[in-house]
Lab assay of single mutants.
Amino acid sequence: MKHYEVEILDAKTREKLCFLDKVEPHATIAEIKNLFTKTHPQWYPARQSLRLDPKGKSLKDEDVLQKLPVGTTATLYFRDLGAQISWVTVFLTEYAGPLFIYLLFYFRVPFIYGHKYDFTSSRHTVVHLACICHSFHYIKRLLETLFVHRFSHGTMPLRNIFKNCTYYWGFAAWMAYYINHPLYTPPTYGAQQVKLALAIFVICQLGNFSIHMALRDLRPAGSKTRKIPYPTKNPFTWLFLLVSCPNYTYEVGSWIGFAIMTQCLPVALFSLVGFTQMTIWAKGKHRSYLKEFRDYPPLRMPIIPFLL
């Protein structure tokens, strides 16, 4: 059985960083990364991007050496992705923050609204209902991160945790300040508006959870398998008939419901920014589905049925 020789060059300087002799033909890129780490321990596998061309796409960890368009002496180019952190850690951090930050404003801890309001309670029912909904949303997200989601990528750049936390924590503080303010004004149409908004919120939260469970069942634990998601017997998953990412559709719907319930401008802005970002993600995933699966359902749109 022939063996391969693998040289790894710096993608920027073309400097030879490592030479691997007698590499098995069936070795994966993940195994080559581990061998590279032995000579350069500062670059652990998650930091490494190996590619066939200095400006090309990163090879997948599961790619097999003998199936790549290389000879028995293969040249790979290395790029440092920077310090990495696990997706689970990032999600837990960015979701735990809003949960606790919101509660600080809800309980009106000292130095927020003035001494005479310390630890007082709002007289408006919608304020307490909003706290329950907000807390439920982020507790749900935390539990899904721990027990439901299966991540195709193990890590992301460390800098992302600061960007994500600034976004989630900042908006949580902004909306919580106004919703729990002693001078907060309840919704214009009173109980009817709150009940309608609560119904929207609850339905969308159930829908979002149902989609996450359906997506989880598509991917076996520990794998990166991708399949076309289809509706199940659960009615909340029937939205798969019309959109590629109904989890985002339901998520946006939840925040629209919360915005109607609280009639709070920061919540509306958070919903708008979230919708914009999720639309970008949904379009990317939709394109990926179309590219990977020739039999992908043609009627589906990325996030909004028939429109977007």
Rank of each mutant, 00 (worst) to 15 (best):
V23I: 14
E94Q: 01
V267N: 11
C133R: 02
F78P: 13
W174V: 02
G97W: 06
L65P: 09
V252M: 09
P187A: 05
F119M: 15
L35P: 06
K12N: 09
P157D: 15
C245F: 03
H134P: 04
T249K: 15
T145S: 11
G56K: 04
C133V: 07
L81P: 08
T145Q: 13
K60W: 15
A221N: 08
P298Y: 07
A197E: 00
H181N: 01
T166M: 00
Q193T: 06
A214I: 15
W174R: 05
W281C: 04
R300K: 13
F136M: 15
V127Y: 05
S223I: 15
R51V: 10
M213R: 09
R150T: 04
Y189S: 08
T89P: 14
E62Q: 05
F19Q: 07
H115R: 10
F36D: 08
T232S: 11
P302T: 05
V252S: 03
I304S: 09
R150M: 14
Y95W: 01
Q193C: 02
K195S: 15
R216L: 09
R300G: 04
P187W: 03
Y248S: 12
K224L: 08
V243T: 14
H149V: 04
Y168E: 07
K38N: 05
W87F: 05
N160G: 02
L146N: 01
G71E: 12
K22Q: 05
Q205A: 15
P235K: 08
I256K: 02
F19P: 02
H3E: 09
H40E: 03
Q48S: 14
Q42L: 11
R287L: 10
T262F: 14
Q277Y: 13
K60L: 08
Q205E: 15
F119D: 14
W238G: 04
F209N: 06
F171S: 09
F78D: 06
I260P: 01
Y184L: 15
F119R: 05
Q277K: 03
S271D: 06
A197G: 14
Y250S: 08
P45E: 01
K38E: 04
Q66K: 06
T166A: 11
L307F: 02
F111D: 13
T93A: 11
F209D: 01
L146R: 14
F162I: 13
Y4H: 09
H128Y: 06
V273H: 14
P157N: 12
H124P: 06
K12Y: 03
V267S: 12
G154Y: 12
S49Y: 03
R300S: 03
T120E: 02
L50P: 08
V273D: 01
Y4W: 04
G82A: 12
W43K: 14
V148L: 10
Q42W: 10
N164S: 05
K60M: 13
L239T: 03
H286S: 00
P297A: 04
K233E: 07
R216M: 10
D21E: 12
Y250P: 15
R159H: 11
F236E: 00
T28F: 01
L241S: 15
H115A: 03
A221I: 15
K116Q: 01
P305A: 08
I112M: 00
K60I: 06
M278N: 03
V194N: 12
I200L: 04
F136T: 06
L142P: 06
F19A: 07
L239N: 03
Y4G: 05
Y168S: 01
L103S: 05
I211M: 11
S86C: 12
D118V: 08
E15C: 06
S49H: 12
L35F: 10
T185F: 14
D61S: 03
R159I: 15
T155P: 08
V273I: 14
F236Q: 03
K224W: 10
L146S: 07
Y113K: 15
T37Q: 04
V148S: 13
F78I: 05
Q192P: 06
W87S: 05
L52T: 15
L308I: 05
I132H: 01
A197L: 10
E292T: 06
C18G: 08
P182A: 02
A74E: 03
F201H: 13
L307G: 14
M156L: 03
Q84N: 04
Q66P: 08
P302W: 12
M261A: 01
F236V: 02
A173W: 07
F19Y: 12
T13G: 00
P220S: 09
L146C: 14
F306L: 09
Q205W: 10
D295Y: 06
I304P: 14
I8T: 07
V273T: 10
Q192G: 15
D217E: 05
M301K: 11
S49P: 07
S254Q: 02
L129F: 11
P69N: 12
N34V: 00
G170K: 01
G154D: 08
G114I: 09
N180E: 08
H134N: 01
F136Y: 13
F209P: 15
V194G: 14
D118A: 03
S271T: 09
E31F: 08
R14F: 13
P302C: 06
V148I: 14
K16T: 13
Y177P: 01
A83L: 02
Y168F: 00
I203G: 14
K16D: 06
L20D: 05
G82Q: 15
F270P: 02
R159L: 10
I32P: 00
K140D: 15
I211K: 15
I260M: 06
Y102A: 01
R79S: 03
C264R: 07
S86V: 12
R123C: 11
M175F: 00
R14S: 09
L104M: 11
Y95A: 05
L35G: 15
P98E: 01
F91L: 08
T13F: 06
F19C: 04
I8N: 01
K2M: 05
R123S: 03
G257W: 14
K16Q: 07
A191R: 05
Y168D: 00
Y189D: 09
F275P: 00
M213L: 07
V148M: 07
A173G: 05
K60T: 03
F119P: 14
L196S: 14
I101L: 00
L104I: 01
H149P: 01
L198Y: 15
V70L: 10
I132T: 11
A27T: 08
H3F: 12
I32V: 09
E7L: 02
H26S: 13
A282G: 07
T185G: 01
G253F: 02
L206R: 04
L146P: 09
V126W: 02
L242H: 02
G257P: 01
P231D: 01
L206P: 07
A83S: 06
I256G: 00
A11R: 07
D10Q: 02
V70G: 05
Q48N: 07
P305N: 14
A130P: 02
T155S: 12
L52H: 00
F236H: 03
T72I: 08
E31M: 06
E292S: 09
K163G: 05
K22H: 02
T37P: 05
H137N: 13
Y113V: 02
L307E: 02
V126S: 14
F78A: 03
T89S: 07
R14P: 06
L307P: 07
F136W: 04
C131L: 08
N247K: 06
C245Y: 04
Y250F: 12
K33W: 13
L35I: 02
K55G: 05
T37I: 10
Y177K: 12
G97R: 02
H40V: 01
S58W: 06
T28G: 00
G97L: 00
R141Y: 15
I304C: 13
F107M: 04
I139F: 12
F91V: 03
K22W: 05
R159C: 07
E31G: 10
P41L: 10
K38M: 10
L52V: 00
Y289H: 11
W238S: 08
Q193W: 00
F147Y: 03
L158P: 04
T89L: 15
L242N: 08
L103T: 13
E7H: 01
H128K: 00
L50Y: 02
T89E: 15
R150D: 14
G284C: 11
Q84Y: 05
I228S: 10
A221P: 10
A197T: 11
I256C: 05
R150I: 15
H115V: 02
F147I: 06
D21F: 01
L99V: 12
L299F: 15
R79F: 01
L20C: 07
F105A: 15
Y177S: 03
I211V: 10
N208D: 05
G190C: 14
P186S: 12
D61Y: 05
I200S: 03
A30M: 02
L50V: 08
L272Q: 10
S86T: 14
W169A: 00
S49Q: 12
N234C: 15
L81T: 15
